[in-house]
């Protein structure tokens, strides 16, 4: 098996240097994110209720896309099973809400804990799997999800699903809450991920991804790296699910199918595995909007996803070459 990590393409095409740039004095990416957030804060007043709702879902899905991209960027691994974690988070919120009337105050931390724990639990038996082997294993994970949901129907409500109605802030408009909670979650997660880039753990993960032997020689064990990144990615995946549950108001098995897991990966590829707020928003918007826009002609959805996936991958492959060729041409000219 070749060692070339999947992110090579993406990393080399357009390095995600937001954290770096902030460090070196230039604050452009931070400002971009700030402006973006400011604009998004006002969106509900410009858009109708249904678009506000859709945007909330975009934010939630962006978190899921971020979870997948993070695994690629920091672990060099591809997951096609992140619905396992999103389902975990969504049902944490759904079950606590419908059974016990407990709102996000408690269910989001629970979702995070469960996501991290199960990420670690999955990482341990798969710690020696890499590349394609891990991808196939996550695929099996994704397939097991709907089955588990339907079999725990006493808790999960089976096919029917659950309806999340307890407000986060009692008294405030539910529609606006669903929007702003999602936005806040997305901003917080993006910020935390940007911090991770600067931490010793994050740097160790990056070194372990590109040069495991060097990381080893300086005190970062490979198994530690793998287990940590799966825990983090699982936790963020669960936060995505929790946000989806609250902003989308319903939790049902249809949201956590195998296809949904692939769509998250497609979203990640479409955003070129970016970790910055604008990038993950692109991925999240893709995952959310494509099925909505094509909802009248359902058969086109997989075709469109497939074409987008291929298009982005081929673009990632040919862009640097084209750019190089153009540079050469302009040099000779």
């Amino acid at each position: 098996m070749s060692e070339a990590p999947v992110s090579d393409q993406a990393t080399h095409m357009s390095p995600d240097r937001s954290a770096m740039a902030r460090l070196s004095g230039s604050i452009t990416p931070g400002v971009t994110a700030g402006i973006l957030v400011a604009v998004l804060m006002f969106m509900p007043y410009l858009l109708g209720g249904s678009w506000t709702f859709t945007l909330g879902l975009c934010f939630a899905n962006s978190i899921g896309v971020l979870a997948v991209s993070l695994l690629v960027r920091y672990g060099g691994e591809v997951s096609i099973g992140h619905t396992f974690f999103t389902a975990l988070g969504a049902y944490s919120v759904g079950v606590l809400d419908t059974r016990y009337g407990i709102s996000l105050w408690a269910s989001v931390p629970l979702a995070l804990c469960l996501g991290v724990t199960l990420g670690l639990l999955f990482a341990w038996p798969s710690r020696n799997l890499h590349g394609i082997y891990l991808a196939v294993t996550t695929l099996a994970l994704a397939l097991a999800v709907p089955e588990m949901i339907n079999n725990f129907d006493a808790l999960t409500g089976g096919y029917e699903g659950l309806y999340v109605a307890t407000p986060f802030i009692p008294g405030a408009s539910m529609g606006l809450q669903r929007y702003y909670v999602a936005l806040a979650m997305l901003v917080i997660v993006c910020f935390a991920v940007a911090r991770l880039r600067l931490s010793r753990q994050g740097m160790a993960l990056l070194l372990a991804k590109t040069h495991p032997a060097a990381a080893d020689a300086f005190g970062t064990r490979r198994v530690w790296a793998r287990i940590s990144i799966m825990g983090i990615s699982g936790g963020i995946g669960a936060l995505c699910g929790a946000t989806l549950a609250f902003s989308g108001s319903t939790v049902s098995p249809g949201g956590f199918t195998f296809w949904q897991a692939i769509f998250l990966l497609v979203g990640s590829v479409v955003s070129f595995y970016g970790l910055s707020l604008p990038r993950v928003l692109i991925g999240g918007a893709f995952v959310t909007l494509v099925p909505q826009l094509l909802s009248s002609s359902g058969a086109w959805i997989p075709v469109f996803y497939g074409l987008a996936l291929l298009g982005m991958i081929l673009l990632g492959h040919y862009m640097p070459r084209i750019r190089k060729a153009m540079a050469r041409k302009s040099e000779t000219a």
Partner: peptide, 24 residues
């Protein structure tokens, strides 16, 4: 040790690469 084939992480700055020597 150092490596015969340079084993620096391309995603980290030079300073950060050196920091990895004491990150543990």
């Amino acid at each position: 040790r150092s490596f015969q084939h340079v084993a620096l992480c391309p995603d980290l700055t030079v300073r950060e690469n050196v920091m990895m020597g004491i990150a543990r």
